[in-house]
Design a binder for these strands. Structure first.
Lengths: 209, 209
DNA sequence: CCCCTTACTGACCTTAAGTACAATGCCGTC
DNA sequence: GACGGCATTGTACTTAAGGTCAGTAAGGGG
């Protein structure tokens, strides 16, 4: 499996050469196509000096050609990670990664895996969980709630107590309870815990059965 | 690198034995710890016959022990995939995967990669992009929880009441409360609502303590 | 003007939740 | 064998949560 680096800065290539002695390096993605490489390769895309938006075209191009692309950056960010991976990259790592690390990553992506900074993995999943449409329960019918009820529900969704909600909305705790009761009925949940979960698109105990 | 399979069904082991001749198989995760394996291993968790919620405790336990866990299921689902990966699994694949495929996956996860069904990768990224770019929200320190506490917390995370948890775990409601108290303290939450949210990586109202 | 919805509140009650202060038995370590 | 962590349970207590059964008030149709 051949490695192919795309970078404008010559310095970073040293580490790469160390990790993959037989690797090739080019300055622009356009050159990749020119090589007309026969075998499937792994392309390492150096983002240094470029905005996220600016690498995307190159990334798309390489992905479109069937390469497995790993994006490297000196300043990793969550948003950028998701962006490039969503665009088709299979890896997102730090530019300063050690040669051994680079070989690890190469091994992973060449066998169908996905590689990204460990801390980003956890974060990514957490975000997805909230965005994933719950099949069984479906999104709560928030449209049925009155404006006031919605204000209450949203605070419950963040763990607020009745007292806190009452103070925040400048109403009595009794009134909060009244809203709660109607909310429970409208959304078909039995208590504030299930409401909080439902508001965050998380399937509930009874639903999982 | 040694492979370790957790399954209750004997039939599926044949394929595994074929992929990894020197693999070991056990029936419950609890046995994993009993083995006191010296080297870091890869644990393959068979979900067959279990609900998503039922594997999570085992999963967390194995992850907490430092194993790389791959969850296998006969009926893959998007929601479940995100859930198990979010819980700490590094792989989510089909139970019927061919031996060659299994070896690929093993290679990937053993080198720090993430493996999931290709179609889920795309979906995952698309969902993440839609999710709100909320700032930092590190995962709760679930490692501090004992196995038993984890089982309780896991069910609270799905909206179960103390009584339901007690029945499910076949213990007294009083015991559940005891676990709850220590869980609250360990995770720094004040009630079950905040616990449920924390377990799902959702920032809470007044967590800005 | 009546009806309905929404918002708000009171007094009262029941129950779930959570805490305080214990005790017992099981393991594994030192 | 002493010690500590874990799991379990008991009694008793305090409080938050939620429901019952009311009532008042504003606002918009019909």
């Amino acid at each position: 499996m051949k490695q192919l680096f795309v970078a404008r800065d010559g310095r970073v290539r040293e580490r790469w050469q160390k990790a993959f002695p037989d690797a090739q390096a080019v300055r622009q993605v356009g050159e990749v196509a020119a090589l007309a490489a026969a075998a499937m390769q792994t392309v390492w895309l150096d983002k240094t000096g470029l905005d996220t938006i600016e690498v995307l075209p190159s990334l798309r191009e390489a992905v479109g050609l069937g390469y497995r692309v790993v994006v490297m950056t000196a300043t990793p960010s969550e948003a950028e990670a998701f962006r490039v991976l969503n665009t088709g990259a299979v890896g997102y790592c730090h530019l300063e990664s050690a040669p051994e690390q680079l070989r690890e990553i190469a091994l992973v992506v060449e066998h169908g895996g996905l590689w990204m900074l460990p801390e980003l993995v956890q974060r990514l999943m957490a975000l997805s969980l909230r965005a994933v449409p719950t099949p069984a329960a479906g999104p709560p019918q928030l449209n049925d709630l009155t404006p006031r009820e919605l204000m209450v529900a949203e605070r419950v969704a963040h763990g607020a107590s009745n007292r806190e909600i009452a103070e925040a909305l400048d109403i009595t705790e009794r009134t909060v309870k009244a809203h709660m009761s109607t909310i429970f009925e409208k959304l078909g949940v039995r208590d504030r815990v299930q409401l909080a979960l439902a508001m965050n698109n998380i399937p509930t105990y009874a639903t999982v059965n």
